[in-house]
Amino acid sequence: MKAWIAFWNILRKDMSTYYLKPPNISWGLIFPLAWTAMFFIKSGTGFSIRDILPGVIAMSILFGTTSMLAVTVTFERKGRSFERLLLAPISLNLIMLAKTSGAIIFGMFNALVPIFMASFFIDLAGVAWIPLFLSIFFIAVSSTFLGLFIAVSVSEVFEAQTFSNFFRFPMIFLCGLFFPIDQLPVWLRVLSYLLPLTFGADVLHAAVNHAGRLPLWLDFAALACFCVGLFAFSLRNVKRKWIL
């Protein structure tokens, strides 16, 4: 019970201190709008909202989670307030889960914005909602844990931002959201399957456009493996680098 009081309060503090601030809420709204507008300008009026919806959802989650978590954890670490969490009588696993839960929720909220906006323009009747929400959850978790992995690998806020982009931009172009993976050179195809977003994007394509390439169970299994792997690796790094 005591551990859960701590968990809930870490989550609540992060939500009110970082995620529910007006700049971040506006980021969550403006980001999907900007991406949709970009596609509109690029292809004139001839683009299909349904085709770009999985991409905008995925990017909203990816950017929302990684940019926030990598920066907040690095910031708290730099200001030594993270030490206060390490001195609390709760397990490191629970501390890190509490720290990441805020980003996961923020990422999922970001994903709902383009869906909500799309509902005004297209008929979403054919969407497979359960796989869609499961994929949103898994993309949010894996992206957040990627942000955590970045946060525990750097010591400065600017390094966190640079390192985030090192992962984010290749992921956008290699995950199959905008360029079909089948059309990529073989070595890039191998690389794309080493990225969690590839599997998340595949579920999104399947849920929105019924155009998935892999079986859903395989996508979810791969996403679960990425989540567990990134979290375990991050915890190992925290123990190794922060508890000297």
Binding site: K2, I5, A6, K13
Partner: peptide, 16 residues
């Protein structure tokens, strides 16, 4: 960014 009171109650919450 937290007030004095919020800092203390947060630290108390960390101890359950």
């Amino acid at each position: 960014e937290l007030s004095g009171l919020d800092n203390l109650t947060f630290c108390a919450a960390l101890h359950g």
